[in-house]
Design a protein around this nucleic acid. Structure first.
Lengths: 110, 110
DNA sequence: CAGCATCCGTTACGATACTG
DNA sequence: CAGTATCGTAACGGATGCTG
């Protein structure tokens, strides 16, 4: 057990998606199955290490499905599991709030 | 500007509440105004430094209101701003999902 | 192409001590 | 009571090089 032991549901959720990269990966996979390289390209500035790491974590958490094709050159496709899909409302709520917040406060930000 | 520059609304939200401590503080303040010491006592294992730090950040972000009473002994009360209050649906969504997730994964958290 | 192992700098965080 | 300041460690995360 490497997890810092959540005490409430909110924290559970946060442990699973409360990460800059994870939400971006999720957002990306929300639009459909993607290859490793595609994810990497579509997420600016993410290192390969981080991408692998986060994907593995999310796979272990049952949010992401990893399909490995034994071909040459190798191909690995990532997609959301049902559980991962079920996060959509949560991410939407965050997105809606974030947008509203930016309108409220982010006016002065150039 | 210390913020890592968010590119999408989801990330904006995450930057503001995507933190173990912040959600706990928010949850706490959702039930009403609380003093510094009360917050500290109600949040297990948080260091005083972290509490101050997070509260200041949230204050700067306009989520939390800080009321200082010039008395002896000093008293400082924290409460949610309207913006902070508006996070309730988001936290609720996270809470609902987290609870469902725990049930799905059969994680019997003692 | 996808991924792992290693090194290594930066930052986060906790513990502690001091102040109004 | 509610902080601030300092310090040392631990973890995070990026860059690079090697493999199937």
């Amino acid at each position: 057990m490497t997890k810092p032991l959540p005490c409430c549901p909110v924290e559970t959720t946060l442990l699973l998606i409360g990460d800059k990269w994870k939400v971006m990966i999720l957002r990306d996979l929300m639009t459909g199955t993607k290859r490793f390289g595609a994810l990497r390209r579509s997420i600016p500035a993410i290192s390969q290490k981080m991408l692998t790491q986060q994907l593995r974590a999310m796979e272990a958490d049952g949010l992401v499905h990893r399909e490995v094709y034994a071909e040459v050159p190798p191909r690995v496709e990532y997609s959301l599991t049902e559980t991962g899909e079920s996060l959509r409302p949560v991410l939407d709520a965050m997105s809606v709030w974030g947008r509203q917040y930016q309108r409220d406060q982010g006016e002065g930000v150039a």
